[in-house]
Write a protein that binds this DNA or RNA. Structure first.
Lengths: 316, 316
DNA sequence: GAACTTCATAACGATCTGTTATACTGACAG
DNA sequence: CTGTCAGTATAACAGATCGTTATGAAGTTC
């Protein structure tokens, strides 16, 4: 006995509403269509599904049981419809993002949480990597979106770059670092302290090498490397070490009052934080929504940084 | 976005099996039918449901989510089919039985349990009543089956009677009753003990009156009445009282060694225990199965009683 | 018992389904 | 690189089914 699922749904509607006419209305059908379905079902099943001549229409036990299954289908069908609707406006789906560890940990994770306040049914799968990996992952359709610093000369055939934050590095240290007591710390002083190197593969690592060499270091004294942001921060909290970090990452930690940036200007890398997407990516509303959210989030961040620095200047 | 449920089921089958061809086979369809459904779905939804050119066919997140709903429907559909199959052979459904209290309590309840060992999905709704109520309940389609003693002259227009046990009453007492010590108790002795009367409405009540009067009682000394079987048994356990009961009911209690029948013959009532059904009752396999089970159960009981009495005689 | 509501049936056009036949595409081997 | 192979998409068609309107039958209510 194989059923047409639609028939069971019609049965369920009739049982639920207690009448053929009402059941038909519930499904947006004309009454005779449903009536015919019921007759057909009873003939196929060979058992009465309703007690005839009773109003409100009373189902037999078998009719009732069958209707329950129909109701399950009706609910599933409705859910499927809702799913597509919410997917269309970006309210459901999956967003697979990849990015460099520091940015992800310091900035993106929090943004994800904020995003899901308004998009609770969007799942976010996060992964880590540096530009070459991320580019490959994008092209292999393993991620929808990459957030990473790119050199202005990086070529991304088939990729779209959207710059969201200018590249700007600072030297980070704990808030009790002795160098912060000097009115105008000199680059040469920096070489007196142990250094933490960013993980291999990070563009920051190259920045650090260039920086230290420009300060006249003959050899680079690395005490610790390879840790994630949390490791680096915890290390910094416990020692007068120094490291190089994107300004925005240090800025995002300002509330914690554990690390800060030395008031010393170092060269801008020719680089910018960007959102990378495939130009031929399959359209996904949730991804679009998330990307837009990240863009506006970083725009706010830029303003915050600007105001923060102005207040510091005025505060001087 | 309204879906044809069948389409979602086809989608689910394809996702589940990992291929259009296999999915079609799972549903007993040709491959092009399913292929067309998928194209149509993608066009309607406006989003890709599968990553093209991948084998095994890989669904997009949206495709996967939709397929899950389809799977729910497929499962519900299968369950509905199974339900009808099991209903057809009487393995599921509802059986509404009514009967006289003593028989129901002593014999039928246990039979119900035995029946459900082989028919676990059949629900049994039990209610109590005497012949007039049961006949009315049958005609009003409130019960499917009545089990009660009927007078041979009861007319049951529109009802079918199936006799399952001849009428035979005994005088019941506790196993320690003093009358059991007498070799051949005389009817007159019976009047020396207090009597329990069956509930009003029970045909046993009339039997009791007739019996006592035939023994020469001028007035009927009733000490207790109206209780269910359990009450009567518990009363009997605690006093040297007597009562009248169907032999089968006393017999069913033999294992308990609490009550027994006095070895004294009393007149057969012109009555028999029967299964009553409406002749125009809607066909219900579960009811048929149950009725057949009850019939065979009582046939066994008859044999048991016969063998038991033979052994008692040989034992003498 | 009359008015009213609800359900069943009939007839019909449009749609959709499932089929077979066939062309296309990606995967794999030599 | 190319031929083969399995799997998928497309085309065309016959038949079933759906949903509709119109109308008759049955039941409920006052």
């Amino acid at each position: 006995m194989k059923f047409d699922e639609r028939h069971l749904i019609q049965l369920a509607a009739v049982v639920k509403t207690g009448g053929v006419t009402e059941g038909a209305a519930l499904l947006g059908l004309a009454q005779p269509a449903v009536s015919r379905t019921l007759s057909m079902l009873e003939k196929r099943v060979g058992e009465p599904l309703f007690v005839r001549g009773r109003r409100p229409l009373q189902p037999t036990p078998l009719g009732l049981s069958l209707a329950e299954h129909g109701l399950v289908m009706l609910a599933a069908s409705r859910k499927a419809s809702d799913l597509v609707e919410s997917f269309r406006v970006g309210k459901s789906g999956v967003v697979r993002i990849g990015g460099t560890p520091f940015f992800m940990d310091a900035l993106i994770a929090g943004l994800c949480a904020e995003f899901q306040a308004s998009h609770p049914d969007v799942r976010i799968d996060q992964s880590y990597g540096y530009f070459p990996d991320l580019r490959a992952a994008l092209k292999a359709d393993q991620i929808d979106l990459a957030i990473c610093p790119i050199d202005i000369l990086d070529e991304g055939s088939g990729l779209e770059f959207q710059q969201i934050l200018p590249g700007r590095n600072v030297v980070a240290c704990r808030v009790t670092h002795p160098l912060l007591l000097k009115r105008r710390p000199q680059p040469s002083h920096l070489l007196d302290y142990p250094w933490i190197a960013p993980p291999p593969g990070s563009p920051l690592l190259a920045d650090l090498r260039a920086l230290l060499l420009s300060f006249g270091a003959t050899e680079i004294k690395i005490r610790y490397s390879g840790g994630s942001l949390m490791s680096v921060i915890n290390y910094l909290k416990a020692a007068d070490a120094l490291t190089i970090m994107p300004h925005s990452v240090v800025f995002a930690q300002r509330k914690e009052k554990t690390i800060t940036a030395l008031p010393i200007t170092i060269p801008h890398p020719e680089r910018a934080l960007a959102i990378l997407t495939r130009v031929d990516a399959p359209h996904s509303p949730a991804v679009d929504q998330f990307a837009e959210f990240v863009r506006s989030g970083f725009q706010n961040l830029r303003h915050l940084i600007k105001r923060h620095e102005e207040s510091v200047i005025w505060g001087l």
